[in-house]
Write a protein that binds this DNA or RNA. Structure first.
Lengths: 366, 366
DNA sequence: TCGAGCACCCGAAACGTTTCGGAGATGTTC
DNA sequence: GAACATCTCCGAAACGTTTCGGGTGCTCGA
């Protein structure tokens, strides 16, 4: 019965048998491709890797056989034979201890990095120092096991042990932000005059007494911004009074506290430049509590252009970095360093001033 | 002279030369460890891998020799020999096309995932579909090259092609959010009554006419939340009027537009539940433009507790998910699925209601 | 004394790739 | 017609592991 069914049943059975005999769930190997193409394994390998001493037509034959069989080279075998070959992935370790404060920038930056890396055929290996291990252990592991070709290092600090380690072992890397002017690796950093647009804006509005709230010194980014702040003022023949300058944290509480101190000084400034938006939020609140209206009595500028900034009342004038741009630069610089280990260029990114409602001319003296 | 010695001397000299020529800065190999320990390569391997048929003392000798030499096994060789061994890394592909809107949650979630993964000895492989490739190509690649043991899939949609592919090839995975009640993989999702606390809160305040603004249907999370919304109302014997419900986007513009439509309806609700904070921001603006004061005339609740929410005026009442918790669950579920391929459990997370200033009793009818 | 059973050990073969050295053609030069 | 490039191609040896099958000795009971 069911004479139509029988043959198909047999067929499937045969297929199963054949598969079972050979290697049912096994990928085709180079040898299979060679056989399919009627070539030697050697020539097949050379053909697929586009070497010089193989005839054009042979190459074609090999390639065709390869995709007829759906061949993908076995990465492990290749890496075993060519230990110096690229891993095609770049590492990034998230220092969750110093990164405790959730960086509103981080998601966008990672997205941009991954995007650019993928576009260049690289992947991103994310890891975090686990448990009681040293921070550099995460790096050590990754390179001992040859899992990555190089690293992107974020939030570099003064005399950063991670950088010391990587440089010492001559592992390619790129940093975002930078401490030292002499760095044997490429760097993506803010322009030296990164705060200039903001200060220019304030000065144009008529401000001449400008304070600032900085993030903790020791982070590359902080020292740099502080220098930039003073330099931008100097360009206008201005100077910040010591009592108008302070900081020591990342969060709005610190901004609040420092702003309070500044407001309480003898001759408070008419504008405050906060080194990030959270600090600016704190300053905003402090101004409110001091009965100062923003922007009529006091202008405030932030940095980062966190999403919150545009929903505030008053909406915060801020300097925006393009995470996309930075991510792309980071990856490209690192890839460059892979090809040319001595590469140590600098790419500078300039934030864009986003003018909103928190800046205005200073109150008329009466 | 010393005709017996000559050859040996020559030999050793040759050996040394060969070594020196070969690769001075090369990692120690298993053979080196074996020699150092005075064992065969076989036994050394078995000793280091803690197999059964090797004497206790031998194990010790091998281990000691290994760390005396600073030996790390060559991953490539091991994987070549044991193709089914774990890769110790989990994959996550960022669909940058659907993730265009920068998710404020993403950074925190990734951090949590990486943290938990690292704590368990796993890394996170991030990639993105490159160029014109299909979205699933990124997955295909990663598994063809055996780079990951499993995947975390975010933002699942109705009939998600990625899920189809992964399930079909029986690759372990875990999703955040879920469409189907029957899923052959573990899932981390919101509780069915995720909106209940918010609705309870509104009802307790006295609201009985509540609208909502949803994110595009087709995303697992959206359908789920919509059901939860209706269910939570029903629990109080309430029902949402069709004209009080709408949505089709993620951003504040959509929130603004939909809220406007709702306000223009015959009998507008006294409260609106927005499916994310951005939508709520838009609704807030719309209320303002309609001359409705929030919360006096109209209560608004968001979801996500984006940082902006607490800086708004009025500060937004919102439902907060713990990215840390979700990330940890995702990783743990996936690791479970690696050990037990048929695992298909559900972990539900419940958002916490953060009550701020945007909710209050409805206006007294007069 | 023998064989069996046990606890431990080792040589050698594999995994899938690249590459080194050589080798058959074919053309080119004296 | 010998010598020598040039263009193709191939066999076989690696790379560093794991594991299979086969050893040693040794003890124990018969």
């Amino acid at each position: 019965m069911t004479p139509t069914e029988k043959p198909t049943e047999n067929q499937t059975q045969n297929q199963r048998l054949k598969k079972a005999e050979k290697k049912p769930p096994s990928r085709p190997t180079l040898r299979d491709v060679a056989r399919e193409a009627g070539l030697s394994v050697t020539q097949t390998s050379r053909a697929l890797n586009d070497h010089s001493d193989v005839a054009k037509q042979t190459k074609r034959r090999a390639v065709e056989a390869a995709d007829r069989l759906g061949y993908t080279p076995n990465l492990a075998a290749r890496r075993l034979k060519m230990p110096d070959a690229r891993t095609q992935s770049i590492g990034l370790v998230l220092d969750t201890s110093s990164q405790r404060f959730s960086d509103p920038f981080l998601g966008d930056l990672l997205t941009a990095i991954v995007e650019e890396a993928s576009a260049n055929g690289f992947e991103l290996q994310l890891s975090a120092p686990s448990g009681g291990d040293d921070v550099v252990d995460a790096y050590k592991q990754a390179i001992k096991q040859k899992r990555v070709d190089g690293f992107i290092v974020l939030r570099v600090t003064n005399d950063d042990p991670r950088l010391r380690f990587l440089v010492e072992h001559s592992i390619p890397l790129v940093t975002f932000g930078c401490i030292d002017d002499a760095h044997p690796y490429p760097v993506v950093r803010e322009t030296d005059d990164c705060f200039q647009p903001a200060i220019d804006h304030l000065v144009e509005l008529g401000h001449s007494s400008i304070g600032c709230i900085y993030v903790p010194l020791g982070y590359g980014i902080s020292d740099h911004r502080l220098r930039s702040f003073h330099r931008a003022l100097a360009a206008h023949g201005l100077e910040a009074k010591p009592e108008h300058v302070g900081g020591a944290g990342f969060h709005e509480e610190v901004g609040y506290e420092v702003a309070n101190r500044i407001f309480a000084s003898e001759e408070p400034p008419t504008a405050i430049m906060a080194f990030n938006d959270l600090l600016a939020f704190g300053a905003l609140q402090a101004a409110k509590d001091h009965g100062r209206s923003v922007p009529d009595d006091m202008s405030i500028v932030g940095v980062d252009d966190v999403m919150a900034s545009r929903f505030l009342k008053p909406a915060l004038t801020s300097m925006r970095y393009s995470a996309t741009e930075i991510g792309h630069h980071l990856v490209r610089q690192l890839l460059g360093a892979l090809d040319e280990p001595t590469a140590n260029g600098e790419v500078t990114v300039r934030p864009a001033l986003v003018i909103r409602e928190s800046t205005a001319p200073p109150p008329k003296p009466h």
